[in-house]
């Protein structure tokens, strides 16, 4: 378990003191993937770097599995660091070493014998799917492959925690997904706690169990990922959630809705939001069977998968000569426990 208690960090800059992290209180359970999301400069890196003592809090304490990192020094700190793996945005591999030698590097630091190092590194090469590339140098690898080496290296000392510092931010979308799948796989296989910091909500949605939103050094919102996606409270969280759930056509949808409202003044435009199981039930066809004098027009829809279930939204246009049928349909949606929002003119 990881605990941040009243952690603040200030830096002395030429322009005065800069407050990077303010009163952060966090408890991160074992075996989960915990995401911290924020824009650049929000203090994410400072927070994650406190977990392996690369950064010390100005006030407060950081405790990892019972030992207070923020109080450790010298050998005790180095021994603790052996138990924490870290992966980086720019991979930070040694160009002078092959894939295998890079993975063996932390084992050399831990003073394992040559034979033990090799055996362990070979296993990890296989785990991260780089079999056959053991003797390649980093310059011969693609970005995704380099990050796989980074992950294997971070895992070599059997860490209790894996820290991921914007590990997919330098990768293209497809490679990002491959690396995220690998992290998820490792989390499940090794029951390893993973702390992910990122500015991409996509990463949070895809692999995280819990998320904390960081804004200007403060945690403004936290909770299970599905809850935060369903019901974002802070404006910044809404921005992050929209960044992921909008299909990029949000503006188009708004224009289409406006047009529809003008064209069919008698109908109703409704936004339905689905969570979890509802997302897979055939709501539209059921509705049409229930109310045979209803016409239903789908404007836009999307669905996203998170670790705890799906979340989706659907814009529909209800048309009927019979006002009662429309009201009945809206009431019917309520019984299906679908969030319903009637979009009014204006």
């Amino acid at each position: 378990m990881i605990e941040f208690k009243d952690v603040s960090k200030t830096f002395d800059a030429k322009t005065g003191t800069v407050s990077a992290v303010k009163d952060v209180n966090l408890v991160i359970p074992d075996g989960k993937i915990y995401g911290i999301v924020g824009y650049s400069g929000a203090g994410k890196s400072t927070i994650i770097r406190m977990l392996n003592g690369l950064e010390a809090p100005t006030t407060g304490s950081v405790t990892v599995n019972g030992s207070e990192i923020s109080a450790l020094k010298g050998k005790a700190l180095r021994d603790q660091r052996l138990k924490i793996g870290m992966i980086f945005q720019h991979f930070n591999l040694l160009w002078s070493r092959t894939v295998l030698e890079n993975i063996e590097f932390p084992l050399e630091i831990a003073k394992l014998s040559k034979a033990e190092r090799k055996a362990k590194a070979l296993k990890l090469v296989e785990l991260v799917g780089l079999k056959g590339r053991e003797n390649a140098y980093p310059s011969e690898l693609s970005g995704g492959q380099k990050q796989r080496v980074g992950i294997a290296r971070a895992l070599s000392n059997d860490p209790e925690i894996l820290l991921s510092d914007e590990a997919t931010s330098a990768l293209d979308p497809q490679t990002t997904d491959e690396v995220l799948d690998l992290l998820l796989d490792i989390n499940k296989k090794l029951n390893l706690s993973v702390i992910v910091i990122t500015h991409e909500m996509h990463v949070i949605r895809k692999i995280c169990d819990h998320v904390a939103v960081l804004d200007a050094g403060e945690i403004v919102e936290q909770g299970p990922v599905l809850d935060v996606f369903k019901n974002p409270k802070q404006a910044i969280t809404k921005r992050f959630v929209n960044q992921e759930t909008d299909t990029g056509s949000a503006d188009d949808t708004n224009i289409a809705v406006e047009e529809m409202l003008k064209k069919y003044p008698q109908g109703k435009i409704v936004k339905l939001t689905f969570h979890g199981e509802q997302a897979s039930s055939p709501i539209v066809s059921e509705t049409l069977r229930q109310f045979d004098d209803i016409d239903l027009n789908i404007i836009e829809g999307n669905i996203h998968q998170t670790q705890e279930g799906s979340i989706g939204s659907l814009y529909i246009h209800l048309l009927s000569d019979n006002q009662q049928s429309i009201d009945g349909t809206l009431a019917y949606f309520q019984t299906l426990r679908v969030e319903t929002e009637v979009i009014e003119r204006g």
């Binding site: 392996n52 180095r78 021994d79 603790q80 660091r81 052996l82 870290m86 932390p106 630091i109 831990a110």
Partner: peptide, 8 residues
Amino acid sequence: EAAEAMGA
């Protein structure tokens, strides 16, 4: 920094 983070 990576080496330092590994406990070197």
